[in-house]
Amino acid sequence: MNKLILISGCSGGGKSTLLEALKARGYHVVEEPGRRVVEAEQARGGEALPWRDMEAFLRRTLALAIEDFEAARALAGPVFFDRGIIDALSGLQQLTGRAPEDAARRYRYAEAVFLAPPWPEIYETDSARKHGLDEAVAEYDRLAVAYPEFGYRTQILPKAPVADRVDHILSTLQLG
């Protein structure tokens, strides 16, 4: 079984909270690359931000997601990712009409990808997430198509309390 497990889906759909809960249960987690790129760019006054230079942002996010993937290979046991390589590739494909698809073939996560659906009741913006719910839903719709196109089987996460979502993932993966 591939131990690199991806959680993707709608921006503001509770992925980061879910990863925190998995970490609290002792699992390795990898924080969202895009959010880390935004934080680094804001700290240094950079331009590779989704609201300034989306292509530069996506290329940095892709590079960081590949670094994360490589680093996670050395960890024992399952590793849960908050977004990953396919998210960045899908965004680049939509934006530019092309993306380095060889990365999708070279870096494979576990076949089952968990998608957090749009959840308006918990959606919030912040300094790193300035887009509205409509844009988040459009992103979700794009990813729901992209993951199967790249050979992944998607599992929609229930809109449920965090502990129930964690139990759902662990049960699906036969880890808990």
Rank of each mutant, 00 (worst) to 15 (best):
Val137Met: 03
Leu157Met: 05
Leu143Pro: 05
Val145Asp: 08
Gln94Ala: 15
Lys159Arg: 15
Leu115Trp: 04
Pro100Gly: 06
Lys130Pro: 05
Arg105Phe: 03
Glu121Tyr: 06
Thr125Asn: 00
Ala104Gln: 05
Gly132Trp: 01
Asp134Phe: 04
Tyr107Met: 02
Ala163Ile: 05
Arg98Ile: 08
Pro148Ala: 09
Arg98Asp: 12
Pro158Ala: 02
Ala138Ile: 01
Leu133Glu: 05
Asp126Cys: 12
Thr96Pro: 07
Thr125Ile: 07
Tyr152Phe: 04
Thr172Cys: 11
Ile156Lys: 14
Ile122Lys: 04
Lys130His: 13
Leu170Trp: 07
Val166Trp: 10
Ser127Val: 15
Leu115Thr: 06
Leu115Gln: 02
Lys130Tyr: 03
Pro100Val: 08
Pro118Lys: 03
Lys159Ala: 08
Pro100Tyr: 00
Val166Ala: 02
Val113Pro: 07
Leu157Phe: 13
Leu143His: 03
Arg165Ala: 05
Arg142Leu: 14
Pro158His: 06
Arg105His: 11
Asp134Thr: 09
Tyr107Pro: 05
Asp164Leu: 14
Leu170Gly: 06
Ala104Asp: 03
Arg98Gly: 10
Tyr109Gly: 08
Ser171Phe: 06
Ala116Asn: 02
His168Lys: 13
Ile122Glu: 01
Ala99Val: 01
Val145Phe: 07
Tyr123Gly: 11
Ile169Leu: 13
Pro158Lys: 08
Ala144Trp: 04
Pro161Gly: 01
Ala104Pro: 02
Glu124Ser: 11
Arg142Cys: 06
Gln174Ile: 08
Ser171Thr: 15
Glu111Asn: 12
Glu111Pro: 10
Val113Trp: 02
Pro148Met: 11
Glu101Phe: 14
Val137Asp: 01
Ala144Ser: 12
Ala103Trp: 05
Asp134Ser: 11
Gln174Gly: 12
Glu139Gln: 07
Glu149Asn: 13
Asp164Met: 13
Gln155Pro: 00
Val145Gly: 07
Phe114Ser: 03
Glu149Trp: 06
Val166Thr: 05
Ala146Phe: 10
Arg106Trp: 08
Ala146Gln: 10
Arg108Pro: 08
Tyr107Cys: 09
Glu111Leu: 12
Ala116Asp: 06
His131Asn: 10
Ala136Leu: 07
Ile169Phe: 04
Ser127Arg: 15
Lys159Gly: 03
Pro161His: 12
Glu135Cys: 02
Thr125Asp: 00
Ile169Met: 09
Tyr107Gly: 00
Asp134Gln: 09
Tyr152Met: 06
Asp167Trp: 03
Pro120Met: 10
Ala112Arg: 14
Tyr140Gly: 02
His168Glu: 10
Leu95Thr: 01
Pro118Thr: 07
Ser171Asp: 14
Thr96Tyr: 13
Tyr123Ala: 12
Tyr123Pro: 11
Ala112Leu: 11
Gln174Arg: 15
Pro117Glu: 03
Arg165Thr: 03
Val166Phe: 10
Arg106Lys: 15
Glu149Ile: 02
Ile122Ser: 09
Val145Leu: 13
Ala116Gly: 08
Asp164Val: 06
Gly97Asn: 06
Phe114Gln: 07
Asp167Glu: 15
Ala103Phe: 13
Arg129Gln: 04
Gln174Thr: 13
Ala99Gln: 03
Arg142Phe: 06
Glu101Ile: 09
Ala112Ser: 12
Ala146Lys: 01
Val162Asn: 09
Gly132Ala: 10
Glu139Asp: 12
Pro117Ala: 12
